[in-house]
Structures are given as C-alpha cells and as structure tokens.
C-alpha cells in the first residue's frame, strides 16, 4: 500500500527511525538546557561542547583505560557533570545578578575554548567508537530493519526523559526545583540551600548532555565539532518547545526529530531547514513556545 504514495516502506520507516534517533538526542539535550535555563536563567551555550565532552570521555575511557560502554554511560556524565559544577562554582555564579546576555557570552566563549582544545588534540576527522557487542546487529521487523543499538538509544532516551520528568513533577526534590524556578529568594528563606541546588542542577543538566554524548558516540563520529553541529538545532527545539518547559522540550525534541526524518523522505532539500521554518512560524504565532507560558 505504501507504493501508492510512491515511497517504499523501507525508506519511509528507515528515515522515521533516523528522525526518532535525532529526536532522542534533541530531547535529552533540550531537557538539560530547559532545566538549566529554568533555575539559573542562563542560556547554556556550552551544552554542545559538554555533549561532545561526554562522547570524548567515553572514547578516552575505552581507549586508555579499557572501560566499556556501560560503565562509560555512568562515568562520563559524572565526570563531565563534575566539570560543569566547577564551571558553575567558579564562573557562572558570578553572573546571576547580571543580564542573561553575560551568561550566554561566557558559556559561548567556553564552548569555543573547549572545542578548540579538542580540535588541537584530535584534529577534526573524528574517532570511531564501537557499538557495544550485545547491541550489535538488529531485527528484521518485516517492514524495516531495526539496528539494535538505534532502538536502544531511542528507548533509553525515553526512559531518561520520563525519569527526569517524574522526579521534577512527583517528588519533594522536584517541588523545590519547581518552586525555586519561580521564586528562588523565597525558597531560600524557607530554609533550602538554593545556591547548592543551583549548582547541582547545573551539574545534572550538563551530565544529561554528556549522557547524550555517550549515546551518540557509536552512531556518529566522536569529533570536536559534533556539539556545535547539534547545538543550533537544539536551541531551535528549546525555542519551539518553550524556554524552561520540561515536558515541552522532551515532546518537541522527539516530534521535531520525526518531522526532520519525514521531510528527508518527502522533500529532502528542506530537511536541514524544516526545524528553523517551524521555529520562525512558532515565534510569530506563539512567541512563548508551544508549551511555554507567556510571562
């Protein structure tokens, strides 16, 4: 029946899967950005570099210490998250009382420095990271072939996003976070150590970026520019979803990934721009974003 619209099902589903995988990265990355923006009011431009760092830490762990993918999935976010905590403590913290723009400039500068250092160390051609042995191969689903690792990425990203959302919406810690996003001064006056909560939230958001980096390592090349390529699209996702909206960023991430995949099937020329077209339309019609609240 798919022949009716002139698209072989293999191509259609194949592109949808690719779109879903991109969407998974968009979702995990924009989730971290939304969390950070919500509580810190900082537009974390270093996010792409931190994603790249996650991939590189996994690659370094494997090649120099023989530490496998599964451990890297835990270790890399912890290492990169700790680096994020250091950045927050030493630099970002000093900018909270200033305009958003200063945080953006600082994190943008840091992104360039980190990317430059890795470009210097590893060149731009990129390293490959092997798919972990238990996830090699795939299943023939009849209408398409599903590579196991790609299925894992989509599944695991969904779990991470859902888990984060549950913690924020359903736990005590999450209520501190939501309240702190609205009125940090009052939350602190109730006895909660808000500065520490801010530090840990930044660390967690950065850890999410690194996690996405580890997930991406076996699919894309591990290379210094991988974050810069990704971050622009992720910012578009965040704008479309609504700045600071947790659910919005996750849903929008997956939807836009799919949309991008479908565009590749039906009108490949537009696939690189479709997200930005959507962004422009959303900004014109609903400037706060699809899930954002107008302030």
């Amino acid at each position: 029946m798919f022949e009716l619209i002139g698209i072989p099902p293999q191509a259609l589903f194949g592109q949808m899967l690719l779109g879903l995988i991109n969407g998974a990265f968009y979702a995990v990355l924009s989730l971290g950005l939304a969390l950070i923006f919500g509580l810190l009011n900082v537009i974390n431009f270093t996010h792409g570099a931190q994603y790249m760092l996650g991939a590189y830490v996994a690659w370094l762990l494997l090649n120099f210490l023989g530490i496998n993918y599964w451990l890297a999935l835990i270790l890399a976010p912890v290492v990169v998250g700790a680096f994020g905590i250091l950045l927050e403590r030493l630099m970002l913290r000093k900018l909270y009382h200033l305009d958003h723009l200063y945080g953006l400039l600082l994190t943008f500068g840091l992104a360039l420095i980190i990317e430059g250092v890795f470009r210097n160390l590893y060149g731009i051609s990129g390293q490959s990271y092997p798919v972990p042995p238990v996830l090699t191969g795939g299943y023939n689903l009849g209408f398409m072939f599903l590579p196991l690792y790609r299925g894992w990425v989509v599944f695991f990203s969904l779990v991470v996003c859902l888990g984060t959302w549950l913690v924020i919406e359903k736990t005590k810690l999450g209520s501190y976070l939501r309240a702190g996003t609205e009125n940090p001064t009052l939350v602190q006056a109730f006895g909660i150590n808000v500065p520490r909560m801010i530090t840990l939230t930044y660390g967690f958001g950065v850890g999410l970026a690194a996690l996405a980096g580890v997930l991406a390592a076996p699919i894309y090349q591990v290379k210094p520019t991988m974050g810069a390529d990704m971050i622009i699209v992720v910012f578009a996702v965040v704008v479309i979803g609504g700045m600071g909206s947790i659910m919005g960023s996750v849903v929008t991430g997956f939807m836009l990934g799919l949309l991008e995949g479908l565009t590749k099937v039906f009108y490949p020329e537009a696939s690189n721009t479709v997200i930005f077209v959507v962004m422009a339309v959303v900004l014109l019609i609903k400037p706060a974003g699809l899930f954002g609240k107008a302030s």
């Binding site: 001064t185 602190q188 109730f190």
Partner: peptide, 21 residues
C-alpha cells in the same frame, strides 16, 4: 537566609509568594 530559617524564623511575604507550579 536559608540558615536563618533553620533557626526557627518563618516569613510570610506581602505578595504571599504562592507557587503557581
């Protein structure tokens, strides 16, 4: 302020500060 609250003072602000989320 978080240490002050822990000593046993509690504050109800003029604007009430009810959290909408």
């Amino acid at each position: 302020s978080n240490r002050i609250a822990r000593l046993g003072l509690a504050y109800c602000p003029e604007e009430r500060g009810i959290f909408s989320s």
